[in-house]
Design a protein around this nucleic acid. Structure first.
Lengths: 123, 123
DNA sequence: CAAAACGGTATCCTTTTTGACACTATAGGC
DNA sequence: GCCTATAGTGTCAAAAAGGATACCGTTTTG
């Protein structure tokens, strides 16, 4: 069963790419990751306050996804006003250069104006 | 006009990243791009045959998206058995290093088995 | 007692994305 | 006349993603 995969993969190099993208795809995932890159450790509501427009449910979902994918770590303190700390895992940190490259590409070719443009004459 | 955006951007570096991701997100987009990286120019059905499981409608949609985002070029030949050639644009080619980095990361950390793992001991 | 803060769940709903499948027009081969 | 190939389009339905809102238990604060 590995043969088929492999041949499929060699014909379809997008597979691993798609898998990688799926990890950071989600309306808030990369925003969360960026905040965790900057702050190292954040609590649930700290993240929430940094991302205007996100609902608890969505934030919970995205954090759960990121955790399930091993990109972030979740540390729960057994305290009575609950305390939960989120931070990037090793794996999450290993994404940093790619995210930055992506951001760089976006800055150059999309320039915050929504739609891409070939010649970067935005400034 | 860049100031406000900029401050928002520096607090929310995910923006450009998300925009960039949105261009290559879509079930078949990066597969299409990879095939066009390898083959330079492909006709509609050539792409279709290279991607088992894609329907005409989906392929059309994804190609239209990629074209609208300026990542690929579409050349129509006014012939009677229709002939349309797709190729990467400049902008599309500029994504190549990132896609390759993404693929590399995926190969290392996901290893074709669907779910990520921190220590790359997939075998 | 009542309200706020914490980190969530549960439920319902809408929008977006994807999939299945049929259909188009024209030309060549049989 | 029928089938094939080309590059699509149209319609419908299912699934996935996202959003709005209310609720949970506990403790501190007023």
């Amino acid at each position: 069963m590995s043969k088929v995969r492999h041949s499929n993969f060699s014909r379809n190099p997008g597979c691993a790419v798609e898998a990688a993208i799926s990890l950071i795809d989600g309306k808030w995932k990369c925003v969360i990751i960026f905040h965790l890159m900057e702050e190292e450790v954040l609590r649930f509501n700290e993240i929430r306050r940094r991302i205007p427009g996100v609902t608890q449910r969505m934030l919970t979902n995205q954090l759960r996804d990121l955790e399930a994918d091993g990109l972030i770590e979740r540390k729960v303190y057994a305290q009575v006003p609950p305390k939960v700390e989120y931070s990037l895992s090793e794996l999450g940190r290993s994404l940093q250069p790619i995210l930055l490259a992506l951001k760089d590409w976006g800055d150059t070719h999309i320039g915050l104006f929504g739609k891409p443009h070939a010649s970067a004459d935005a400034a």
